[in-house]
Amino acid sequence: MNVEFEADHDALLQSIVDVALAIYGAAASSIFLYDTERDELIFRAVSGQGQGLLVGRAFPSSQGIAGWVLSSRQAMIVDDLTGSDHFARDIAESTSYVPRSLMAVPLLHDDEALGVLEVLDPHPQARAAIAELELLVMFARQASVALRVTRNYAQAVRADPNARRRQETRRLLSALTELVEEDSGPLPRR
């Protein structure tokens, strides 16, 4: 995938979890991408607890609350998670952090689940009701668009392998033109 494109895409996903973290006064926020071939959820962006450690880590798609939300395609808030049931252990094993509460929203396109957006330990006043879930849904829609654009781009590159080379050539030509113009002034345009 084009390096610049991927960097922009990562920055967009990171900004979504950063803003979610700030708005909810949360301990962490994550975006998981669903890998259909491996049937796994992969940490794609993390803010707060686990940032810098978890991106790229994968776990089975049926595991934990992210798996529940992916499967049911329904957003939810869960409280009282500190018990020792298997859901909490799953989370602890994969993130080294056990939240007390969690908000989770599926990332949807048409009827397809692309992934999950989670907010861990939101401030108690910020998880009071359904209205807070709807706010999180707005972020989820941004993340869904970002994931969809990436997937479409990757598919286009697979369908036309030369597209990536042409794009890279255009990028290099553009950079070269800028360099020449810095030294000799504007070049004639056709």
Partner: peptide, 13 residues
């Protein structure tokens, strides 16, 4: 909740 317990949840579900 799976495993025989109970939890507090929010959602139209």
């Amino acid at each position: 909740w799976p495993g025989g317990g109970r939890r507090r949840c929010t959602g139209n579900s």
